[in-house]
């Protein structure tokens, strides 16, 4: 599965793995990178390999919430309103350049992400399951952007940055050896994904492992000047992501290595408040170095 997606997204196996873990942990993914790095390709490849519906919305500054959620349309034949679902009603939604939309639209999206349903004119419409949002944002130094506040960043399970492919992989890409997402055969169905998500919840977290996570959280709160302290939701996200990661590693229990593998993706954006530092992952690495990982 990972190798299949890896064939599409050349040289990015770790990021593919993280994205998959995010999907298994029922979390949403924020990809921050420059245009043209393969964000859309990743999202599409994930959706396709699970046979999930995939939609893409480019966020612009004039995008309104109703453009996402859909709206009640008057049907002259039936002389009544009926609901016309918007692009939110898909299983994988790629929200391109989310930080270019107005905060109002951003929050509409994020509320849908958190609650799993959409309310239009007083009626709740459940979103399809599984539901994964892959949002991309451009660097904040680029024009026409408004930063996501910390509270909304917290709702993304992971933030990834794809980065440039290695030279070898890029050569293969240029030679046309990579596959297009359309070429991927469907290996799993949506029900397989639900089953895998359920298995994630059953991954064993021993007391020693929880102690390790708790030590990490406590240290992030005790060390001033080392980024924002981690919230309890961050702790939940960390454990959920580590569970998914351990499942991907073929284990039935979680070990500190799993936590460390997802720590940067899960915690960095919560600690730096959306302001990516010079070196990505520095804060979480410093945090990790402060806690005994041997256990």
């Amino acid at each position: 599965m990972i190798s299949a997606i890896g064939a599409v997204l050349l040289g990015k196996e770790h990021q593919v793995r993280l994205a998959l873990a995010c999907l298994l942990a029922r979390g949403h993914l924020l990809i921050e990178d420059l245009p043209g790095m393969g964000k859309t390709t990743l999202a599409e490849a994930l959706a396709r390999s699970f046979g999930l519906g995939f939609k893409r919305v480019s966020f612009t500054s004039d995008l309104l919430p109703a453009d996402l959620t859909g709206l009640n349309v008057f049907d002259p034949g039936a002389a009544s309103f009926h609901f016309q679902p918007g692009p939110l009603f898909s299983q994988v939604l790629l929200a391109d350049e989310i930080n270019r939309a107005s905060p109002r639209t951003q929050s509409a999206l994020l509320e849908a992400m958190a609650a799993g349903r959409v309310s239009v004119d007083g009626t709740s419409h459940p979103l399809p399951q599984p539901f994964l949002v892959i949002a991309t944002q451009n660097g904040l130094d680029q024009g026409g952007t408004s930063a996501l506040p910390e509270s909304q960043l917290d709702r993304f399970l992971m933030r990834l940055s794809l980065g440039y492919p290695p030279r070898q992989a890029e050569r293969a890409l240029l030679q046309g050896e990579g596959l297009r997402p359309d070429d991927l055969s469907r290996t799993f169905g949506p029900e397989d994904l639900l089953e895998l998500q359920a298995r994630c919840d059953r991954q064993h977290c021993s007391a020693a492992l929880l102690d390790y996570v708790l030590d990490l959280l406590e240290r992030s709160r005790r060390q001033p000047g080392q980024g924002h302290p981690l919230s309890p939701r961050a702790g939940l996200a960390l454990v959920a992501a580590a569970r998914a990661w351990s499942l991907l590693q073929g284990r039935d229990h979680v070990i500190p290595d799993d936590v460390q593998a997802v720590l940067g993706a899960v915690c960095e954006h919560r600690m730096d408040g959306g302001q990516r530092g010079e070196r990505d992952g520095e804060l979480s690495q410093r945090l990790q170095a402060g806690i005994d990982g041997l256990r």
Partner: peptide, 20 residues
């Protein structure tokens, strides 16, 4: 770990056992 430390190999900060 002490036996290994005497040979000059100690775990780095935050390193997990499998990595070490």
């Amino acid at each position: 770990l002490r036996a290994f430390a005497r040979q000059g190999m100690a775990p780095q900060a935050g390193e997990t056992l499998p990595v070490f």
